[in-house]
Amino acid sequence: MANTKVAIIAANGSLFDAYKVLNVATAAAASDAEVGIFFTFEGLNLIHKEGHKNLAIPEGKEHFQEGFERTNVPSIEELIGIAQELDIKLIACQMTMDVMNLEKEDFVDGIEVGGAASYIDYAKDANISLTF
């Protein structure tokens, strides 16, 4: 999968959304693909310095908590660390940051900040593009 490029939009911020985004992203990067994720609106929760450690399970689905523990699924914190180790590009949406009054320092280290055009530029020659 070298020479394969994956562009992902993360637009939702529950624990489930975080797993959907980060499992696919890390699996792709572990398969030697180049991966970039554009975090927008609630998706910013996934890279918020404190927020990503305590993402909520969607309402009414709290009973899944036990399953996460039983199956030893990695924590979101751990997956973000792996994503960075695998050189996945993490891009926070500037416009949403402005609306939510967030600064670059509010996020995990090593992210980039960009607008919609940055995502389009990154994704224009992607082989796989996904939205979560």
Binding site: N23, T26, A30
Partner: peptide, 13 residues
């Protein structure tokens, strides 16, 4: 052992 997706392939890599 005991690790869930995607950890087996991340570790293998």
């Amino acid at each position: 052992k005991g690790l869930a997706c995607p950890m087996p392939i991340v570790k293998t890599k």
